[in-house]
Nucleic acid binder design. Structure first.
Lengths: 299, 299
DNA sequence: TTGCGTTACGACTCTCGTAAGGATG
DNA sequence: CATCCTTACGAGAGTCGTAACGCAA
C-alpha cells in the first residue's frame, strides 16, 4: 500500500470511475494505474472496484468503507505538507476562497485589503459560485475557506462560524410609488420583484417571510448577483430586494433603499472550513480579519 | 513521502530516538533508515529531528506537530487492513485484550467462553498489567480493548463504556474477631489490612473511604491480585479487602466475606478502546458479550 | 470503430545492503 | 573504543511506459 494507490482510488470518484482520466491526473499511463489498483486489491485480499466487463462501475461495499479511511489519510498528508510549509515560511502560500458574488463584491474587499498588507506574499484565489457548489469545493479540497449565507447548516465535517448578520432592503428608482406610505409585505407583493436566484444570498428568508404571510411574490427576474438586479431595477422592471450590504449610497444614489429588516428575517453570513484541516497561520489571520471586520459592518 | 518513512518516524519515539533500533523494527539496515529520514526531511523542507552531533535527541517543534498527523495516518492505515480482513473473513482474526488480574480471573472467563463458541477461529491474546500500562497499550496499538476499573477517566482519544459495578468485601478466616459485631470503618482500621496495590482494582475508593473518615488503614500487604491477598489472609496476616467478584463461595469456604458496600464507595469497571479505531465485527460482538454479561454479575 | 481496461515485457528509477567514515561520550 | 549516525556505491526489486490484446457501445 502506498500513497499513490490511495490517491488513485480517490481520483476514480472524481472522474466518474474513468481510470484513464484518473491516471492522467496522476501523470501516469493507464496501464500503470490499472496495475497499481490491482496490486492494492491483491494486498487487501478483496476487489475494491465493481467491474462490469471491462468497465469500472464504482466501489464495492468494501471499497466504500475503505474510502472513509482513504479520505482521512489524504487529509492528514495534506496537513503535513501545509504544516511544514507554514513552518518554513509563513509569508508565502496560497489562499483559496470560495464565496458568492455578494460577499466577494461587498464584504470581502476590506478584509482582503487588510490581509494583503500583512501577507503580501500569499496568492489569493477567489472562486465565485453558488452556495451548494461552494460546499462541494470545500469537501474536495478545492477551497480552504467558504464564506456564504445559504446552505451552510450543520455538517459534521465542517467548522461553521457565524461571521456577520445583515438584512434585506428594497431598492427602487427615485419617485417609485412604493416610496409613498408604509412598507408592508402586501404592498411589496403588489409590485413585480427582482431578487436573488433560489439558494442565493438569503433568498430562502425572503420566501419564508412572504409564505408565512400567505403572500406570493411575483418574481420577474432572479439573478445570482446584486448588480444584475440593480441594473434591471434601473430599467424599471420592478422592486429589487437585495442585501443591505449591496446598496452603496455613493454609486447607487439614483436608487433609493428601504429597510426591510422588520419584514424579512435577518440573514447570517457564515465562514466554513474542513474540521480536520490544518489552518496555516495566515489563514487563521484571515479568518480573524473576517470576524473582526463584521463589527464594522453596517446593519 | 511514503508509509515506511512515517512509520520509521513513529518508531523513533518508541525506541528513545535510537535509529538503529527503529530500523531493526522495520527490518531494514540503519543506513537505509537514515537515508529515508533524510529524504522525508528534504521533501518537507525542514529538519524533523534534533541532532546533537550525530545523535538524535528528539523531534523538532515541527516534528512534534507533524506526529499528530502521522498518528492519524497510521491509524487509518491499520483500519484499512482491519476492514479488509474483516470483510474477507470475519471468523478469523486476533483479539488483544489488556486487563487486570481481577477482571481476567473473575469477570472475563464467561464472556470469553461465550465468545469462543461463536468465533472459535479468533486468537485471543490477553495481557495482564497495571491499569496505567493498560492505557498505554491501547494508545500504542498493542491492545484492542482495555477492561479495568482504575485510571479510565476522560481521555479524548478513547471511547470508555461502563461495564459493571461492584463493591468491596472484607475476607477473614472463620472465627476471626471481626465477625462478631457490626462492621464499621473504625473496626476495620483496627486490624492489619491486606489489599490491592495503589492504582489497582478500586484501591482508590478504599483510600477515599478511610481518608474521609479521618482513619488510616494499616496495610500490611499490597498485591496486584486477589489470590495473593487471599493466600495471606489464610496465613492470618490480617483482614483482606477485595472485590466482591473475587470471593468464590465454592473455593473460598474457609474464608468468610463481609459486605462493605455501605462503607466503601462502589467501583465501576469500564471498557475502553481507541475512538478512531475500526472495530471488526467479532470485536463488536465481544464488547456486546461483556456488556450483556454484566447483567448477570452478582452485585 | 472508438473508448477503455488489462496483460506482457523491456528500461529505468529507486531503495536496499555492505562497507567505510566520522562524531560522541 | 564502543555506539550510533552518515556517506558511498553496487546489486536487486519495483514501477513505468510502450505496445498489443480484449471487451463493450
Amino acid at each position: 500500500m502506498n500513497f499513490s494507490q490511495l490517491e488513485l482510488l480517490r481520483l476514480l470518484e472524481e472522474t466518474d470511475f474513468n481510470l484513464s482520466k484518473a491516471a492522467e491526473k496522476m501523470s501516469v499511463v493507464q496501464s500503470a494505474a490499472s496495475r497499481q489498483i490491482q496490486l492494492l486489491e491483491e494486498e487487501l485480499g478483496s476487489p475494491l472496484l465493481l467491474r462490469h466487463g471491462k468497465k469500472i462501475g464504482g466501489y464495492t461495499p468494501l471499497g466504500v468503507k475503505l474510502m472513509e479511511e482513504v479520505e482521512s489519510i489524504d487529509l492528514a498528508r495534506r496537513n503535513m505538507q501545509t504544516i511544514a510549509d507554514d513552518y518554513r515560511d509563513n509569508r508565502n502560500g496560497t489562499l483559496h476562497i470560495a464565496t458568492t458574488h455578494t460577499q466577494a463584491k461587498y464584504f470581502l474587499p476590506t478584509p482582503i485589503r487588510n490581509f494583503r498588507l500583512k501577507y503580501p506574499g500569499i496568492k489569493i484565489y477567489m472562486v465565485q459560485s453558488s452556495p451548494g457548489e461552494i460546499i462541494d469545493l470545500l469537501h474536495h479540497h478545492q477551497a480552504d475557506l467558504a464564506i456564504c449565507t445559504e446552505k451552510l447548516d450543520a455538517d459534521e465535517k465542517l467548522v461553521i462560524t457565524p461571521c456577520y448578520d445583515w438584512h434585506h432592503v428594497a431598492v427602487v428608482p427615485r419617485n417609485h410609488p412604493l416610496l409613498e406610505g408604509d412598507i408592508t409585505l402586501e404592498r411589496l407583493a403588489s409590485f413585480p420583484a427582482l431578487t436573488y436566484s433560489p439558494g442565493y444570498t438569503g433568498r430562502s428568508n425572503i420566501e419564508k417571510a412572504f409564505n408565512s404571510a400567505g403572500l406570493e411574490l411575483d418574481i420577474t427576474l432572479s439573478a445570482a448577483d446584486s448588480d444584475v438586479i440593480k441594473t434591471y431595477v434601473r430599467l424599471g422592471l420592478g422592486v429589487g430586494i437585495i442585501a443591505s450590504t449591496s446598496y452603496e449610497p455613493d454609486n447607487d444614489n439614483d436608487l433609493q433603499a428601504l429597510d426591510l429588516s422588520h419584514l424579512i428575517p435577518r440573514s447570517r453570513t457564515k465562514i466554513a472550513y474542513l474540521k480536520q484541516l490544518y489552518l496555516p497561520s495566515y489563514l487563521r489571520y484571515f479568518i480573524g480579519e473576517l470576524l473582526s471586520h463584521k463589527m464594522q459592518t453596517r446593519n
